[in-house]
């Protein structure tokens, strides 16, 4: 049997009202993040990855709202529990780090105090104890000379170091789920590699599960155990990472894999055809239909359900179901 789910997203839909109509940013997305695993959520810009993460934290702001589905965390639906109880979960049991670590830190408070405040707030520690724990956290995430660095401000930290501080802050409350939204975008390759190493290592050590949002398939291949692929607000494929790269099933996943240049060998690169469709009053059916080489009438009318193609490997595509999709 599968390991237990930490968070189980079922049929999540999120819409934003606009002058011209409803924007369906997320359309019946389902996936789960399991105990101790790193799940990758990949897709192009505008595929709904960040909105999905925001919905898990119930931080969707007007004019957006969750219009359907449930988000089960510890067996309770996050969409339905009272706000004051949610406060005990958000930031404590579910933490998030963003792709702009520098702007997520308070520029007017020393880095050490920002970390220490979390221990006071969530664990009720004394000022002296939280200072001590803050230094331990900064050491844990690999900040050199933590005593000196704790007295500095965010602007005195490099991008990679800011991201380490964010990770330290996210982990102060021993969360069960860490949402990392493009944590390495904008960092240099070697800095990015060390942040990913840190996430992997800390995930394994603290037992926190990680939902890693990224558009970089390289990051997915080296960091995640399972992957969910999103396109235009729909989850189109979920698979263990090896299965996804060996036998990508959905035409979008296949196109995505072929569209990136490789550092390890020479390849013929093909961009994903077309562009991400408008999410303003989108038609029923598969949203990849307009870009798909195997499209048929049915794809535009009906939405394909997730069907298994291999152990733990699910895909939402009629062409794959019917065997019309060419072999990989």
């Amino acid at each position: 049997m599968n390991a237990a789910s930490v968070v189980d997203v079922r049929g999540l839909s999120v819409r934003f009202a606009s002058d011209r109509g409803e924007i369906e940013a997320v359309d019946a997305a389902s996936f789960d993040v399991r105990e101790g695993e790193i799940l990758g959520l990949v897709g192009e810009s505008g595929s709904g990855k960040t909105v999905t993460a925001t919905a898990i934290l119930r931080l969707i702001r007007k004019p957006g709202r969750q219009t359907g589905g449930s988000i089960l965390f510890d067996g309770r639906d996050l969409a339905r529990i009272p706000e004051d109880e949610l406060q005990q979960i958000r930031g404590a049991k579910i933490a998030m780090i963003s792709q702009t670590p520098r702007t997520s830190l308070n520029p007017l408070i020393t880095v050490g105090r920002q970390v220490a405040r979390l221990f006071q707030l969530h664990a009720g520690l004394s000022a002296a104890d939280s200072r001590k724990r803050a230094l331990e956290m900064l050491t844990l995430v690999g900040i050199p000379e933590p005593e000196r660095r704790a007295r500095q401000y965010a602007h005195q930290f490099s991008g990679g170091m800011c991201q380490r501080v964010m990770i330290a802050m996210a982990l102060t409350t021993s969360p069960r789920l860490l949402i990392a939204d493009e944590p390495t975008t904008g960092l240099d390759v070697s800095t990015a590699a060390r942040i990913l190493d840190l996430l992997r290592d800390l995930g394994a050590r603290t037992g926190a599960s990680i939902l890693l949002i990224t558009h970089d398939l390289g990051v997915v291949a080296t960091t995640c155990q399972r992957v969910a692929v999103m396109h235009a607000g729909q989850v189109v494929e979920i698979a263990p990472v090896r299965s996804l790269f060996r036998q990508p099933a959905h035409p979008y996943t296949r196109a995505l894999v072929r569209s990136i240049p490789r550092i390890d060998r020479e390849i013929v690169m093909e961009p994903v055809p077309g562009s991400v469709p408008s999410l303003l009053n989108p038609p029923a059916g598969c949203r990849y239909a307009g870009r798909c080489p195997w499209v048929e009438d049915r794809c535009r009318r009906e939405k394909p359900a997730m069907t298994p193609v291999a152990p733990e490997h699910f895909v939402a595509c009629f062409a794959v179901e019917d065997g019309r999709a060419a072999a990989v």
Partner: peptide, 24 residues
């Protein structure tokens, strides 16, 4: 070597060179 080793390859079975530099 360190720069190339740091680039994540989109292949879970690709061999990884553990070579890293210290410091910044």
């Amino acid at each position: 070597r360190a720069l190339l080793a740091a680039v994540p390859v989109p292949d879970p079975d690709a061999p990884r060179d553990p070579f890293v530099l210290s410091g910044e």
